[in-house]
Nucleic acid binder design. Structure first.
Lengths: 238, 238
DNA sequence: TAGTGGTCTAGACCACCTC
DNA sequence: AGGTGGTCTAGACCACTAG
């Protein structure tokens, strides 16, 4: 806070402090925009900039014709930052491409991609290493497009949404993730250099275009002791 | 889109469409604020409202003195909506409080709560049912506060952040979640009416006050087949 | 009817970037 | 020096809410 902050920010920050300290409680109405303008000696448009900050942060809810009301930050909305780096202690993974092959359109994932019978699907299998230990297997499924080079070296290292963005025609706009739990198959245990039937975290991502067409599916199978996910509430920041 | 939208929204929506259709590509500069004002016949402050929308949505990044540049939505940032309802098919859970007791301050969770030696910690153990099947065990640890009624009925049904908000003095402002995988202990398997050593998802939440004091810890142990988590990318919405 | 927030204007001055 | 976004003003009219 050494730098001189703009007036609209000071106003918003003051109110945020009042909320965090409990001076303003859930449901309380904050001063009207006119009042705030007088209190800080600023014009109404400037007040509104500050109020907009608080709304973005989820700290207030404003109702037209009534006022703006304190709403404690919703702590059950959390953000995962999934740049494939959420390992056991935040370190980056080393990527290794194991195989790249076409799969037939009767493959279960090809069906999920909603392809025409003669469309082709590429399957990329990679291994993610952490401290030279194999920590996760990632299978990426995506439509095969002619003229889109797929096997460049950099591709091995890219996170799934970036791979899709670069190698599909449509612009990816949505990612749906499902996190579940399973046990290792024999083949998977082999790749992860561990015993079969060990528990694993399964992270599936499906990436969609604006028309809700699935552009690609990623399925990661993550070693119990070498992988976890972090998430943090994201409301209430200013 | 039936209603007449304000001009700043139309402007933002038009640009969003151009990004999603690929007409504007990553790194492209959008028109300057002055140009947009002329294009839409609106004043600059109104243009800036629209640009602010796009910035919020993460679709552009604006650099002072240079311009605003397209930035494809970051699909590796995802939101979990954790109202304890992320069951296998989105249904709500039925909550049942199993026990509520004091634990000694040498207990591992009490230590994590950073308490003074004579502080007391409450442990609430609940079972979450889905379709009359026990699906998860939740242990909530929090500082014991005199005069804060803890055992009201509604408490059984509340999600963890709400319980903390109502029964601690400080305002909770941050929630840190860690998702990992483990195997069931004998006691846990008993409660979940399944075999021991089954894989489980472990969801730990720690809730902090503005001074980074941990106010409570929740640890959920979730049945492999009766529980999963959903997350969705949240950038790019308008 | 009075009070509130929502939209919008037509300016102004500044700080930052590039040439 | 010229172009860009960042901050701010002093108004205006509207839509919604309440008594």
């Amino acid at each position: 806070m050494r730098k001189l902050m703009p007036m609209y920010y000071r106003l918003a920050y003051d109110i945020k402090l009042d909320i965090e300290s409990g001076k303003l409680k859930e449901g309380d109405m904050i001063p009207t925009e006119e009042q705030l303008g007088e209190m800080y000696g600023i014009s109404r448009m400037t007040v509104r900039q500050g109020v907009a900050l608080l709304t973005e942060a989820g700290l207030i809810e404003t109702i037209k014709g009534k006022g703006s009301f304190v709403r404690l930050p919703k702590l059950n909305q959390l953000v995962i930052n999934f740049h494939n780096a959420s390992s056991a202690d935040g370190e980056q993974f080393r990527y290794k491409l194991l195989s790249a092959k076409m799969v037939h359109d009767n493959h279960s994932y090809a069906q999920q991609l909603g392809l025409a019978p003669d469309d082709k699907v590429i399957l990329l299998r990679s291994l993610l290493y952490k401290d030279d230990l194999p920590s996760a297997i990632e299978d990426k499924y995506m439509r095969y497009l002619r003229g889109k080079p797929l096997l460049e070296t950099q591709l091995e290292y890219a996170a799934f949404p970036e791979v899709i963005a670069k190698h599909q025609d449509s612009v990816p706009v949505r990612n749906e993730m499902v996190i579940s739990v399973d046990v290792l198959s024999l083949e998977q245990a082999n790749l992860l250099e561990t015993e079969p039937f060990q528990p694993v975290m399964v992270i599936q991502q499906v990436i969609y275009s604006k028309d809700d067409v699935p552009l690609g599916i990623s399925r990661m199978v993550c070693h119990k002791d070498r992988f976890h996910l972090n998430a943090t509430s994201y409301l209430g920041r200013l």
